[in-house]
Design a protein around this nucleic acid. Structure first.
Lengths: 197, 197
DNA sequence: GAGTCAATTGACACGGTGTCAAGCGAGGGC
DNA sequence: GCCCTCGCTTGACACCGTGTCAATTGACTC
């Protein structure tokens, strides 16, 4: 509408974020996001090109907001240690929903595209650090057994996260189709190799 | 073909099972299963009515084969405890891929349909027992810390399984659409309330 | 030979994703 | 004041996997 409205791109990201938060497990359609942002579906595609791209951008946006770690504070209502663990996993998983699938595409690119590989390495490193912080907290409040070595604990959380998320891209209809896989690759390239947009 | 060929229904189940086993994470299409079984796509629909129904039937078939527990033996090539844990989770997850989603539908039915509720309770109980056995094995070989009470350990494995699978139905395209949700409900009723077919 | 039943063939509706082309309107530069 | 650009809209379309339908075939039984 008028120019005092928040940046369109941000509006889309906020809309997507809100929908992803509230409709847990429910598939969020591009048209839902567009409607929520008060824009046309095409506007969303103009900004992000692809559903996967939008979701990735959403996680990056969250990073910008720097409150990912706040989300990692386990729910106060959790009764058992297991429940707290699940809360950790849930909190993380909500914000890397499809990025794991993109990993494969980027891995595949790594051989030929050094810049992409570097971007991905950095992103993975960030995730590792996030995991390490979570592990520390888990261990501090006694949720996680101290028997695990730091490396093993990291792997464990990593595993918990990935088992929750790794099928998103491969199983969610559409991305299983070769046609979309190519698209995904192009999208990933666009997102990670240059500044988005 | 001739009548000496194995029962068609079994042939479909075997085909589905094999495809689900080998193409990990890759979405298995009905046409793939039909081709693998040497049948037309329609034949599969005639027998199982729905993709979800076929996948559920596949897990039941596995139960019949009574080798679910054999699958729970962790891979010999796993190097770390975490890797073994992942192997356990993966083995289980492969065989309850969409049943968790159906749970919700059945829960919804439970109020009005006592038979369905009973069928589901029984199925859940079987799963619980399976979990218990797995937990025992996990603890025996030192993968799982003995700090967990039996109940907590069960919950843990349960959680690991569900986080891996609970999005299958809700996120995989198609089942997110209301039209298919109704269908799923009808299918579940057909499968659990009467003998299939 | 009639009836039955399993399976085939080929067509179709549906719905979400992604694409395309034409147009529109507000702002800036000249 | 005019044009141009740019962000967005509108509306139509291709694609593809799921599920449905109707007509047909072919084998087996009675």
């Amino acid at each position: 509408m008028s120019s005092e409205a928040p940046e369109t791109r941000t509006r889309i990201l906020k809309a997507a974020l809100h929908l992803l938060e509230t409709s847990r497990g429910q598939s969020v359609r591009m048209s839902d996001i567009a409607r929520k942002a008060g824009l046309s579906r095409q506007a969303v595609y103009l900004h992000f090109g692809t559903r996967a791209a939008l979701l990735i951008a959403t996680t990056l946006y969250l990073d910008e907001l720097k409150d990912v770690r706040a989300r990692l504070v386990p729910s106060r209502t959790a009764r058992s240690g297991v429940e707290r663990l699940d809360a950790y996993v849930g909190a993380w998983a909500d914000y890397i929903p499809e990025i794991r699938g993109v990993a494969k595409a980027l891995m595949a690119m790594s051989d030929t595209d050094e810049e992409a590989a570097e971007a991905w390495r950095k992103r993975m490193e960030d995730m590792r650090e996030g995991c390490a912080a979570a592990i520390e907290a888990l261990r501090a409040d006694g949720t996680l057994s101290p028997d695990y070595t730091p490396g093993e604990a990291t792997d464990l959380l990593w595993t918990l996260l990935s088992v929750r998320n790794w099928e998103h891209l491969t199983l969610e209809r559409g991305y299983a189709q070769p046609r979309y896989k190519d698209l995904l690759l192009r999208t990933a390239r666009r997102l990670f190799v240059r500044a988005p947009r």
